[in-house]
Amino acid sequence: MNRCLVCNEAMKDVLTWRTLLKRADAKVICKSCEGGLERITGERCSLCSRELDGIHRSGDLCYDCSRWESDNEWSGQLSRNISLFHYNEQLKEIIAKFKYRGDYALASIFVPYLREVLKDMEHDLITCIPLSDERLRERGFNQAQALADLLGLCTVELLNRIDTEKQSKKSRLERISLPQVFEVKNQDLLQGRSILVIDDIYTTGTTLRQAAKALKKAGAKAVSSITLSR
């Protein structure tokens, strides 16, 4: 029997020609829970995927990104971020259970969605935002790596975390002004390559820009990213 990974209710498999002929990904989330996930649609920031509401924007960029891009230090570091969902209550709960309770299985909910957008993203190498060793031991897995693994992606470790303090406890200013969070490893692999970085949430975009900056400085041609939500 199949259970929904979110509500644990048993799911009835509806037998159709489609399910018979096309052995697609087995359903892991029920209709009602899936309905609680909100895709980012409509006009969005061409850089970070935020839905544009007409007020806080500057051309086709959101206000935040236009600020990043007007800063010489950060301009052009991250070429593009794709996010799938709005960070609503339902997703917040799923991600909290996935990350903080360590319910690894929940990563599989996102596999079909990620697979769909990955098709359109050009890249030579894929890497994940790393956790500190301490955090990794605590959780037993890296949530971004879990997504990559369940997608069957071949990833390379290109980044190491220097700072161990929790990002989520810091203000935007603190995050932006941080000197250096990542160091690059396996530098010879990334020369002239475009890199795709996987992470779970795009909050201020600082983590991803820090990673992008480190990678580009070490020789990467371009850095883009994919995240579950923003």
């Binding site: 644990n8 360590g102 690894y104 031991r137 037993g140 890296n142």
Partner: peptide, 24 residues
């Protein structure tokens, strides 16, 4: 059995099954 799942565990360095039933 549908309420167990395996993690490629960074603590014990193998596929490690955990219980989803009491994970909260």
């Amino acid at each position: 059995q549908s309420m167990f799942y395996a993690i490629p565990c960074k603590v014990c360095h193998r596929d490690c099954a955990y219980c989803r039933s009491c994970i909260m």
